[in-house]
């Protein structure tokens, strides 16, 4: 407990110092609010607009969550297909990795044209797509990159392919799935925000940030940014908690792989 406190101390001190410096800089150099708002002003805006921010966070958060779940289910399903039919994997995996490297969320502009202007579907589709590829690449790796010794062992037990899948490939892929979730949880939130920049209903955190900036309400925009940070953090924390409850000693298992 004491060592944990000691580990937390430096980042906390740094954070406090950072905001103090920011506050001081705004005061000393008399920075105008349209240039940079003071943290105290941002906090006021955050406290005053709590319910509005919460409402916007709920919209963006729901989009992120729906996309996260849909993308995970689709990604896992596809990775099973890929590991079963290797030819398919040889075709799709390089494509998935390539797509992962380009900012495909700009597709949301195209998707927006396909649905009504107030629909949340394009944003959710976008999140689904981003999460899908992250989950697909990782879980497929977990299903296929199994130790050759373990496969030989299973063959020496005359185990059918279905038993190898159930007893070796799937458990081997579990830590990979959680790694994928840890990457895709924040990515889902970011994608949900950015999707809102491309038009559609003005109800989420991302669109509130742009509309407040457009109205020169800088401190309010920053308050929504703070809300966005908290939402992303919440998603990440939940993914870590899910991992540690689902796989006891999960982190240890990956770092301390037995020979």
């Amino acid at each position: 407990m004491k060592s944990r406190l000691r580990a937390a101390l430096p980042p906390v001190v740094f954070g406090v110092a950072f905001f103090a410096l920011w506050e001081a800089a705004v005061k000393i150099f008399d920075l105008k609010p349209y240039f940079l708002s003071a943290p105290s002003k941002i906090w006021d805006q955050f406290a005053n607009n709590k319910s509005l921010i919460w409402e916007a966070a709920r919209v963006s958060g729901t989009n992120a969550l729906v996309g996260l779940l849909a993308g995970t289910v689709l990604g896992v399903a596809m990775s099973f297909l890929l590991s079963r039919y290797r030819i398919l994997g040889d075709i799709v995996t390089p494509l998935a990795i390539a797509l992962n490297a380009i900012p495909i969320f700009v597709l949301v502009a195209v998707l927006n044209n396909m649905y009504s202007i107030t629909s949340e579907i394009p944003r959710r589709l976008m999140v689904t797509l981003v999460v899908y590829f992250i989950v697909l690449v990782n879980v497929a790796k977990g299903l296929t990159q199994v130790s050759p010794t373990q496969i030989e062992l299973m063959r020496s037990y005359a185990a059918p392919e279905s038993a190898i899948l159930r007893k070796v490939r799937v458990p081997n892929a579990v830590p990979y799935l959680f790694t994928a979730l840890k990457i895709s949880a924040p990515a889902a939130v970011i994608t949900a925000f950015v999707s809102e920049y491309f038009g559609g209903a003005q109800n989420g955190l991302g669109s509130r940030i742009t509309s407040n900036i457009a109205n020169s309400k800088n401190a309010a925009a920053w308050a929504y940014v703070l809300g966005a940070c908290l939402l992303g953090l919440a998603f990440y924390l939940v993914s870590i908690i899910v991992e540690s409850t689902a796989t006891p000693g999960g982190a240890k298992r990956i770092s301390g792989r037995s020979r």
């Binding site: 130790s147 373990q150 030989e152 007893k167 458990p171 081997n172 796989t247 792989r257 020979r259």
Partner: peptide, 16 residues
């Protein structure tokens, strides 16, 4: 019939 057991250089134990 699993008439033999096998052991390798790597223990090949299942971590989970």
């Amino acid at each position: 019939d699993q008439d033999y057991g096998m052991a390798f250089q790597q223990a090949g134990l299942f971590d989970w």
